[in-house]
Design a protein around this nucleic acid. Sequence first.
RNA 1: GGAGACGUGGCCGAGUGGCUUAAGGCGGCGGCUUGCUAAGCCGUUGUACGUUUAGGCGUACCGAAGGUUCGAAUCCUUCCGUCUCCGCCA
Length: 424
Amino acid sequence: MLDIQKIRENTESVRQGIQNKNMSIDFDAILQLDQVRRDVIAEVEVLKHDRNVVSKDVAVRKKNKEDASDLIIKTRDIGQRIKTLDDKQRAIEADLNKLMLEIPNIPHASTPIGKDASENPVVKEWGSRFSPGFDLKTHLELGESLGLFDFPRGTKIAGPGFPLYTGKGAKLERALINFMLDFHIDQHGYTEVLPPVVSNAKSMTTTSQLPKFEDDMYKIPQDELYLIPTAEVPVTNIHQGEILAAQDLPIRYCAYSSCFRREAGSYGKDTRGFLRLHQFNKVEMVKFTHPDNSYAELEALRGNAEAILEALGLEYRTIELVTGDLSFAAAKCYDLELWAPGEERWLEVSSCSNFEDFQARRGAIRFKPEGGGKVQLLHTLNGSGVATPRLLVALLETYQQEDGSVMLPEILAPYMGSAGLHLT
RNA sequence: GGAGACGUGGCCGAGUGGCUUAAGGCGGCGGCUUGCUAAGCCGUUGUACGUUUAGGCGUACCGAAGGUUCGAAUCCUUCCGUCUCCGCCA
């Protein structure tokens, strides 16, 4: 959510930012509603002040055993007017809040202006192309012949897009999750958390899955819960409504969770194998930072995600999203893409974003500055570190051997066993 | 799922319709003292919104939302949460 005061005072620059995001918002309607709201508040507060003064007089007279009926009659009318205005204020604020929740974050000044993904600049390329000279198999062919997963049975159990991992495939999935968690905890200083995989509407609103993206999520109406599309939701909401001490910042959490996405509107796209799923595993990093440090923390966060890919020896590139491709809540974002030699394409495995105070305002996540001073909103960031399905694709395709087996990188030995690195 | 108890500031805790502007204490912050010394004394204390050149002023907030009343932390209704006991359960 944006600051209404900022919209009021810097209307044109906010308007420009939204336009760069290819969105359109009726700011005139919002400003007008805000003006009405403030007029009503000013009016009702005068009446409440009057009521308080008269009520005190009533109390004094009653204490002195004097008659106060004239005052009571006078205030009865004030009470009615207050009630009317209170109702009006409530209605206006509900309307205004609804509009405010639909306004996307505005891009940071450093985010390149551009219309869509085709204009995203590549900011880093790492690793070398895997081209061994024999015919490369896709992860589907490899997985099937090696018995790593069973899509038909996953479909039978739940439906398409719900993968069943089997044997070494299940172990590899578990190994990757543990490897990434340990890496971020031991090397990058994150604190591990293991959150619920469901969240309520309030939490979903903080991170802005709600109200705009309700159709993308699985809902449990009976209990008014949603399955999380990412651990970002429960982890960011750990400090919802709290006032943290400045000395405690930055807070860095790392969480594994299953993620659930309906992928409505993407039917027929990337339906094969692991490229697009309804349920998948992901290790997520979430940071709560002082506003002054959030962009330095974003660079570090991106580095933490890249370090995973480098440790696994996989070719990747990092792109910076232009304003038109930025997600609803982000002010700046990097995407990490792995090269899948069998698929012969780049696969997005991580998104690292700075939301500035956008989510913090929605969730009332604040901090008290060191040495006192006014409580202020902190900045939230998150990034995948990383999602497993496409990582598994690139890993299998990059480490495949001519005989159809896969020789996993040495760094996974503690998790697979040395002998277990060779998938046959 | 059943029965009961409870929900007050950073924390403890008083408060059953009106000098409550939420007592008192702890903690925090600022100052004084340095013959009460592992201390003592004085002052201060939250959040949001509105308003103001500024200092300030006003309004609201006692789990949440409504209601009764001239006036609600206090009375009524609904909801949420916590705890205890019972039932079920990995």
